[in-house]
């Protein structure tokens, strides 16, 4: 098990969120959408300009900018 930044995750990689380090409005929005420790996320892909990133969690697809993904730590296999 290895903890990486959500921004560094590759396409189709899956992991479990361990920490969300954003505060204020951004932190609130991220949490409201279910990005909380314990949630499993899979990278679905990135936009043509490599930003934002699309994730799959709890059965829906969410997009985040790379700068926002920076705040999220994820535990992945390998």
């Amino acid at each position: 098990m290895l903890t990486v930044n959500l921004r560094r995750m590759k396409k189709n990689q899956t992991g479990t969120i361990t920490a969300v380090n954003a505060r204020g409005e951004l932190g609130r929005r991220i949490r409201d959408m279910g990005l909380v420790p314990g949630t499993q996320v899979t990278i679905k892909g990135r936009a043509p300009l490599y930003d934002p990133v699309a994730l799959r969690l709890m059965g829906f697809t969410l997009t985040l900018r790379n700068d926002e993904a920076n705040y999220i730590d994820v535990e992945v296999k390998e």
Partner: peptide, 9 residues
């Protein structure tokens, strides 16, 4: 504003 946007099916 944070771009935390859903891609609906």
């Amino acid at each position: 504003t944070p771009f935390v946007m859903e891609l609906p099916p």
